[in-house]
Each structure stands twice: as structure tokens, then as C-alpha cells.
Design a protein around this nucleic acid. Sequence first.
DNA 1: AAACATTAGATGCGCACGCATCTAATGTTC
DNA 2: GAACATTAGATGCGTGCGCATCTAATGTTT
Lengths: 130, 130
Amino acid sequence: MPGMEPETDLVERWRSLLTCYNKVACDLERTLQEAHGLTLSEYETLDRLTTQERDKRRMQDLAETMYLSQSALSRTVSRLAKGGLVERTHCEIDRRGVFVAITEAGRQRWTEARKTHLAVLAEHLTPATA
Amino acid sequence: MPGMEPETDLVERWRSLLTCYNKVACDLERTLQEAHGLTLSEYETLDRLTTQERDKRRMQDLAETMYLSQSALSRTVSRLAKGGLVERTHCEIDRRGVFVAITEAGRQRWTEARKTHLAVLAEHLTPATA
DNA sequence: AAACATTAGATGCGCACGCATCTAATGTTC
DNA sequence: GAACATTAGATGCGTGCGCATCTAATGTTT
């Protein structure tokens, strides 16, 4: 009898996703803040900016690869800019657009934070973690 | 050469977890709110109260099976109580403790919301979703 | 039993979030 | 080219969160 109780499976999968995610995210958030003064979103933003080869990214492109709402990303970039980890430059061709570029300080901060990030991840999801 | 690049794998797993979780959670949050006036946390709390057989649960026991901080759970239960979906009763033996019991209205609301919940889950994580 | 430590849960606080809206620039239509 | 629609990103607003702290009840020590 196929499809007997797929609901239970579904809910169970979701619950483990929920639990697992929150454990990791919470720990990451706390640890990154303590050790490097970065929010998880801030770290992830820097990460996108270093990983993707281009040195400049439009907000929009950045948004596509992220999980944040448009407004949340906007504010995250604002915070990073205020801290000097990122620079905003107007797009010449389309002056509505905004380019975001990581600064040297940003790259440095990211390099340090990366170790912490990896350590926390390793601690939580090394084996098969649902 | 074992352990060559476990870092990349680790980060990739995390990223997909992050993305997947946020998609589902965000949709769930929005849909549950619209259709039933429930927060995700509120729904999950009701879910714990109906699924676990006991009719009464101490805050502490409830907290163990959940992903929320103590304060967040406390406020979630407050909201549910204000809406009449849950009842708090003092524990006689240890008067610091608080029992939480789902009400008939709560059970009803949960029953309706469950359909929505399952539908959203099905929509997002039917196949192999990382 | 008086003083101290611990524990259960509530609450003040600051913060990041999503939604809706606003502003300014670009595209489109007549 | 003037009026309207659309688009990129910023901002007002309300909300739920975690952390730290507070309150009240229980345990423990002497």
C-alpha cells in the first residue's frame, strides 16, 4: 500500500530540519558575534562576496544567492558598510542600482571568521545529521 | 588522501540547509499567519501539546522537545493563552512550575492549521531536498 | 529556623527580520 | 515630450527572538 503514511514522514523530516537548523544557526550567531562582531547574515554576505569571483556585485545579484528578504539584505549591507567591511558604489549605467564591493578590511575579517564558522559547522554536522 | 576538502562539503551542506530551511519556514510563517492567525512557533507548540499523549505539560518538558529559548517559549505560551488556545495552571506540588494544557478551541485550531501545514511541507520537501 | 544557593518561569531590552510603503531612476505609451 | 508603469533599493513599522536579569518558590546548610 504505497503512500500509506507519507504525512508522518514529512512532518518528521521537517521537525529534524527545524531542530537541526536552529541548533546550528543559534550557535553560529552567538559564536560569530562574540568572536568577530558579525551577525550570521553579515558573515554570509561577506562569504558571498568573496566566494563569487566578481569583485563587485549588484544588490539584486547578491539577493538571488541569499535567503534574506530584500529589506533585510539592504540593512545588512548598511551595517557592513558602516563597519567599513564593504563599500557601496552607484552603478553608472543604471543609477538606481548599487554595487557592493568587499573592502580589504572586510576580506580580513572574513578570513578570521571563516575558521570560527568552519569549527562550529564541524561540531554540529559532521556525521549524518538528518 | 582522506580529508582532502571536507570543508567545502561542510559549507555546501550548511548552505543548502540554510536555504531550504528559510524557504520553508518563511512560507509556513506567512501561510499559517494568513489562514489561521498562528505563528510558526505557536503552531509547533500546539503540535507538541496534541502529539504528546499527556494532556498537561510542564513548560520545562515542553521546552525540551522544542527549538526555542526559554523566554521565547514563555512568550509563545502567553500569546496562545491570551487567544484561549491554551490554559496555564499552577503546579500544586511545586508552585514555581506551570502546566500548559491545550483547550478545545486550541485543538480545533490546530486541526484546521494542520492541513495548511502539511500542504506547505509537501510543496517544499517532497523529493530529495538536500 | 535563618542565611544562602538553586531553580522555574516572567520580563526589560536591544536587534534582525518581513511586509508595506516610499523615493528616485528607467521604460513605455500616446 | 508629458503622463503613466515599472524597477532598484531604502525606510517606517510592528513583531518574535535571545540574552540577561528579576521574582518567587524550593532545597540546603549550619
